Simulated assay, not measured.
Amino acid sequence: MSNDVKFPPKPKRTKLKIKLGITLAVLAALYTVALTTTGFEVRPSASSAWHTLQRIFIAPLFDADTRAAFPELVGYMLETIAIAYAGLSIAAILAIPVGFLAARNMTGNNLSYIGKGILNAIRAIPELIFAIIFVAAVGIGPYAGVLAISINSIGMLGKLYAEVIETIDMSKVEAIKASGGNRVQAMWYGVLPQVVPEFSSYAIYRFEIDVRASTVLGIVGAGGIGFPLLLATQQRNWEDVGMILYVVVIFVTIIDIVSGKIRNKLV
C-alpha cells in the first residue's frame, strides 16, 4: 500500500485575478476623473485657528462684558437642568412597566419580544429627532425638550431595567408564592427590593446624559442653553461661546461628582 497522499489540484484563480484587476482599474479611473474634474476651493478665514481659540477659552475670562452675562447664562443652564430632570422623572416611571414587559422571566418570551421591540424602536431614534418632532407639534420651548428627553430616556432605561429584572434571584419570588402570597405580593416583596437600588442608580446616571442632551436640544428650539450657544456661534461671538461652554462644563462637572457619590451609596 502506498503511503503517498494525493491532494486535489489547486483551483485556477486566473479568472478571479483578471476580474479583480479590471475592478481596481475601473475604480482608479473613476477616482482619477473625480479628483481632476472637481474643484476644491477653500476660503481663507479672516482669523487664524489659534486666534479663534484664544477668543473662546481665554478672552471670556478677561472681558468684562462677557463676564457680566454669566448670571443670565446660569439661568439658561438651570433651565436645561430642569428640562433634563423633568424628562427623566417621567421616563424613570414609565420605563418600569416597559422594562417588566421586556423581561423574559416576568412575561415570557412572546411578550418579552414585544417589549424589547418597543425599546429598540425608541432607542433607534436620536433625541434630536424627537425634539424636532415635538417642536413642530407643541411649539418652541422647554415643553418640547421635556417630551423629547422623556421618550428617548424610556428606551435606554427600559432596556437597563429589563436586564436588571432578568438577573434577580427568582427563588425569593417562588418562596413568597409557595407560602401563599399572590402575584402582587411576590412582586412587591420579592422583586422590587432587588431591583430598586439599581433602578435608582441607572436613573441617576441617565440624568447626567440627559443634561448633556438637553444642552444640544436647545439648538432646535427645545429650550435651555443650546439656543444662546447656537445664536452666538452663528454671529461668531466666540467670547460668548466660550463663556457658555465654561458654564456647561462647570455644571456638568458638579452634576457628575454629586451623582457619582449618590450612585456609590445606592449600589
Rank of each mutant, 00 (worst) to 15 (best):
V247I: 14
P228K: 03
A175Q: 06
T32D: 05
A103Y: 08
T52Q: 08
W50H: 07
A86D: 10
T23Q: 01
P60I: 07
Y76T: 03
D65C: 01
V248G: 01
G39K: 13
A92S: 15
I209C: 07
D4G: 00
T215E: 06
A102T: 13
Y31E: 07
K10V: 10
V26A: 13
I118A: 10
I129N: 00
L78M: 13
A162Y: 08
L229T: 06
A69Y: 10
K19S: 05
L147C: 11
L27I: 15
K6D: 01
R183I: 14
A148R: 10
K116P: 03
E41A: 06
N237D: 15
I125M: 12
G139H: 06
P44G: 11
I18F: 00
W50V: 15
G190Q: 08
L217V: 08
I204L: 15
Y76P: 02
F62P: 00
V135H: 00
T14L: 00
L78N: 02
L16H: 00
A136Q: 09
K265M: 07
M156A: 08
Q234T: 13
P71C: 10
D63S: 02
Y85Q: 09
S89K: 07
K15E: 02
K172R: 06
R123V: 15
A178E: 12
L157Q: 05
V195D: 05
Y161H: 08
A102L: 13
K10S: 08
L20E: 05
I122S: 04
L160Y: 08
L229F: 11
I244P: 06
G108Q: 13
I90R: 03
K19P: 00
L24W: 06
G155Y: 09
P97G: 06
R236H: 11
A84S: 14
D63H: 02
A49D: 09
I118Y: 04
K261P: 02
I140F: 09
W238M: 14
N152I: 01
G99Q: 12
L20F: 02
P44T: 12
T66W: 09
P8W: 01
L230R: 02
G87Y: 11
L88R: 05
L245E: 12
I209V: 14
G99L: 10
R212A: 11
R13I: 12
Q54A: 03
S150P: 06
L111Y: 15
A148G: 10
Q235C: 01
A84G: 14
Q235A: 08
L111S: 08
S2E: 14
P193S: 10
P197N: 12
G141Y: 04
M106Q: 14
F7G: 01
L160M: 12
W188Y: 12
P228F: 01
R104N: 15
A59W: 04
P11I: 06
F207W: 14
F130R: 07
L73R: 12
A103K: 07
P9I: 02
R236F: 15
P60N: 03
L30S: 09
A144P: 13
E166V: 09
V247P: 03
I209N: 03
I96R: 07
I176Q: 02
F40M: 15
E72V: 04
V196E: 08
F100C: 09
I151W: 04
A222L: 08
G158Q: 09
G190F: 03
P8V: 06
L230S: 09
D63C: 00
L35W: 05
S201W: 06
